[in-house]
Design a protein around this nucleic acid. Structure first.
Lengths: 344, 344
DNA sequence: CTTGTTTGTTTAAACGTTTAAGCTTAAGTT
DNA sequence: AACTTAAGCTTAAACGTTTAAACAAACAAG
């Protein structure tokens, strides 16, 4: 039970050439005109000897590793963890293995991960690109490495991508707040030029503009750093309240922002939805447990994961295939945090 | 920018043999007595040509893939997602790549994943073993494949493992409930013989016994299936209440059980901690948002992840090294859900 | 100046596969 | 009988590395 058994070992014990063994074990008997009986013998000895193909050797020969990389911001963030799980499951259906990696919204780390994974000869990438990683993506494209962007994309780049309808979803969510009677709505978002975030901001702004709620002089959007902690986010919210006296609703751009924001609101003793209504992007188990269950935008993680894998594999198997760019709609889940409050 | 550049290409343009290039790029100049000037030329042309080593070829030659597999129950479960992130980071420090996979507490899936990963020639495994996967682990051991169990282990098997002190942590948590004045404490756990779960049950039972609270005739532990939904867990809790009139506290064995359990308790209109105190294993962002912030057992995920990686790598580099079996203590975070309630 | 040592470099086999091309023998076809 | 085709198998090169061993030239020492 020490040494691994190779095709050569099988060939030797059966008394044939390695070629024959390879043909049989790859179900190429027909094309290679292998004898029926000997094929069976080969198959039997293979299982008898406990043969496990060496994928590394296979990959070296064929130039395909049947592996791809999934680069996200942080695998421990439930959003990406769920996405990853869906990607994993879909990949398995096509006999692909996926290697996850976390880039922490950091271009340098991202480049590092891309290097490591290309050295490992992955057949392609699914990437939630970090800010300033545009050249990295371009380089991959130039090198003809199949690639699907997910969650975000770059305006100028013609790539495959799978997104949700960030603009419309935000527009819809904010409109919902307005319909619920809110007139002074703030937004907390990340300080970034990544398109998904810009779209969410645009959706927010347009909804306000279209409903003539915009007070031009006050900045209604507070942006914070990707790695902002609860205090910084709390400070941002405080500023929003200071700049917009009477602010009666907040729209959070992501789950992390929401969670830290809610804790700050609790500390500041704001009540939801009485003092301030809340709507946010993404899901979290915690949203169900907040005293006023949150209204949130549910992203289609299952479909996004599946689609990304399918597109990637299409691109891997047919390198000439055109780019696919899809946007899958999110769903607004309305609950108590954005309820209409009786004025008294 | 089409074809990848190989060591051969570099050798050709510099005008030396591939051996020299290999020596230089692997920093074996000293041992191989490569000329200083030519070494520099080789190094320069390598970066000029944008050389990226082919890890697949390297692996085939050296028999080491510098990769290991991490098999957990479900990567989308925050417990495993966090663990995975810590494993990822620690592995990167040693230049290892990790391949995550979810076995869904299912032995068949687990075997499947092990097969796929061994075919990919991973250098080792970190596994949170599923029930009935003992023979799989034994087989790996017999084949001399380095291996660290995490979160759970098997009583009869001499393997590396990294765990938390499930028994003591549970004992302590339940004792804490008793000290807080609770006298009729139920437990919700998974129906499994995996050691970590048995230990948590034992800790619970012993704490009760040592404090003379045990009513022998009533089964105070309700066990449910791994994939039990909220309704089933709710039904379990209902039964517990029926069998133990006056039950005034519940101990949940995992985060998932807790989340579903709390939702059921809400539905049944039990109030925490007035009607029933709660303590649970694992963390969840949601615990902070429950109206009565939960008292929970915080597992040392960072240390567990790090240790597991370190032990695995030690085992990979020195196959003769003895098994390391460590238990890292968890911490009870006491909050409102287990508070003392004034009787009236 | 032989012989030995050092320094710098190349050769070539190997890792476990795949696969085009070649080889043999048997079976059809005229 | 001579030739073609088919069936069944083997040969050998290749994928991109690593590395022990061989080689060659330069230098040192006796």
């Amino acid at each position: 039970m020490k040494k691994k058994v190779s095709i050569k070992d099988i060939a030797q014990t059966v008394g044939v050439s390695t070629a024959l063994v390879s043909y049989v074990l790859n179900n190429k008997e027909k094309e290679a005109r292998v004898g029926k009986e000997i094929a069976q013998v080969i198959r039997d000895t293979a299982v008898e000897m406990g043969y496990q193909p060496n994928q590394i050797a296979k990959s070296l020969k064929t130039g395909k590793s049947h592996t791809f990389g999934l680069i996200v911001a942080d695998i421990s963030n439930p959003f990406f963890a769920n996405l990853a799980r869906n990607v994993e499951d879909e990949a398995k259906k096509f006999n692909y293995t996926v290697i996850f990696a976390s880039a922490d919204e950091n271009a340098e780390k991202s480049q590092n991960l891309i290097n490591i994974l290309t050295e490992r000869q992955v057949d392609g990438f699914i990437i939630a690109p970090a800010e300033n990683s545009q050249e990295q993506i371009e380089a991959l494209l130039k090198n003809n490495i199949p690639l699907v962007l997910i969650d975000r994309y770059f305006k100028g780049l013609d790539t495959n991508y799978v997104m949700t309808n960030n603009y419309e979803a935000s527009y819809h969510a904010v409109s919902h707040l307005i319909e619920a009677g809110r007139t002074n709505i703030g937004m907390v978002a990340y300080k970034t030029d990544l398109v998904h975030m810009l779209d969410r901001k645009r959706g927010y702004l347009d909804a306000i503009k279209d409903n003539k709620l915009l007070k031009a002089k006050t900045p209604l959007i507070k942006t914070v750093d990707f790695n902002a902690n609860q205090e910084e986010i709390g400070a941002g919210i405080r500023e929003l309240f200071a700049q917009n006296p009477g602010m009666d609703a907040l729209f959070f751009a992501t789950n992390t922002l929401t969670l830290k924001g809610l804790k700050s609101l609790n500390k500041m003793q704001y009540r939801v939805p009485d003092d301030v209504a809340i709507v946010c992007f993404d899901e979290s188990e915690a949203f169900d447990f907040f005293y006023s269950p949150l209204t949130y935008i549910e992203q289609p993680l299952l479909e996004m994961g599946k689609k990304a894998v399918q597109i990637l594999i299409k691109n891997i198997t047919d390198k000439k295939s055109l780019n696919t760019q899809i946007s899958i709609p999110s769903k607004l889940i309305v609950r108590q945090s954005s309820a209409i409050v009786k004025k008294h």
